[in-house]
């Protein structure tokens, strides 16, 4: 494993990096106008700047989908992978290079359908990284097919008479996985909250899972219309250890007090309600992180040869 000096300074944070925000911006995205991905991208670029992340020691990994174009628009290292497999790639990056800041960006199809197995296990591995799931309740890139999070009854090209099944609840699933470390939900129509959530996720030492409710004006214009238009329908989880954004809390007056160390209450809040709940559902920084559990001493080539000779002795004729 590579163990560069910068790991002593924390995850990719280099106190000397003072770059203008534009320096984190790659070629402009070509998402549809009004697509929620734009706002998330902007908040992310701002986060990188504010947290003074060294672009060369930051890696964005993604799968395939509209949302998975993300890394192309950020000027760090990136790996635009294959559908559903962002998390294994990100796991490999972080295992090999604990010194890098790693972000995985996925769509709802990516994360909760084709990549569902990796999602469960990545939560359990608990590597220190941020995992963003941009949930537009639909397959966007491939033009309007039902996703596991599509609301029951919502028509798509593959299920024109409406989705047959009740929608999967990604928060409940994540909160049910052993070793869950950080589980939050935010919504693209509350930009300040998106930013504050990303920041809390990034600063959390462990696997930070953030579901971002993302509007897709192209295929699911209706699914988040009500909460996006009526502030009362977006409920904010408030707590001093949660996502704290006073301005948002001022405008959005529907609050629910929730201590993010309370897993039972978090699971209760994650259940369906008539409101959209955003905020930090659960946080536990005490869980062992896989890249630390698996950290091994660094050896020079000479060390290894010496050890290898001992290994040959064991197998000597």
């Amino acid at each position: 494993m590579i163990d560069t000096a910068c790991s002593l300074l924390g995850c990719g944070i280099d106190p000397h990096v003072e770059l203008p925000q534009e320096d984190y911006e790659g070629p402009p995205p070509r998402w549809c106008p009004g697509c929620g991905d734009h706002g998330v991208l902007a908040a992310t670029q701002r986060l990188l700047h504010d947290e003074r992340l060294a672009p060369e020691r930051t890696v964005f990994v993604s799968g395939i989908g509209c949302s998975s174009r993300f890394p192309h628009h950020i000027r760090t290292y990136g790996f635009h992978g294959i559908h559903g497999r962002a998390l294994p790639i990100a796991t490999g990056v972080k295992l090999m290079r604990p010194d890098l800041a790693v972000f995985a960006v996925m769509g709802d199809g990516d994360c909760t359908s084709i990549g569902a197995g990796h999602w469960v296990h990545a939560v359990r591995y608990n590597l220190d990284m941020v995992a963003l799931m941009l949930d537009n309740n639909i397959y966007g890139l491939t033009k309007n097919q039902t996703s596991p999070t599509t609301p029951q009854g919502h028509p798509s090209n593959t299920q024109p008479r409406g989705s047959w099944l009740p929608a999967l609840n990604p928060l409940s699933v994540t909160l049910g996985i052993t070793n869950a470390s950080f589980v939050a939900q935010t919504a693209d129509w509350v930009p300040g909250h998106v930013y504050a959530t990303l920041q809390a996720a990034f600063r959390h030492p462990g696997f930070a899972f953030v579901r971002i409710l993302q509007r897709c004006p192209k295929w699911t214009p209706g699914v988040f219309r009500a909460p996006a238009q009526q502030m009362a329908l977006t409920e904010i989880l408030v707590h001093e250890d949660g996502v704290v954004e006073p301005e948002v809390e001022q405008y959005y007056k529907t609050h629910v007090a929730h201590d993010p160390s309370d897993l039972d209450h978090a699971r209760h809040l994650a259940e369906e309600s008539d409101k959209v709940r955003i905020g930090l559902f659960y946080k536990n920084a005490a869980n062992a992180r896989y890249e630390e559990t698996r950290r091994v001493p660094v050896h020079t080539a000479e060390d290894k040869i010496r050890l290898l000779e001992a290994e040959f002795d064991r197998h000597a004729v």
Binding site: I2, P88, I89, V93, K94, H118
Partner: peptide, 16 residues
Amino acid sequence: EIAAAGVAVGASFAGK
């Protein structure tokens, strides 16, 4: 095995 390949690809991308 898919994840195993993915982890190896990610690790190779980032180092040895």
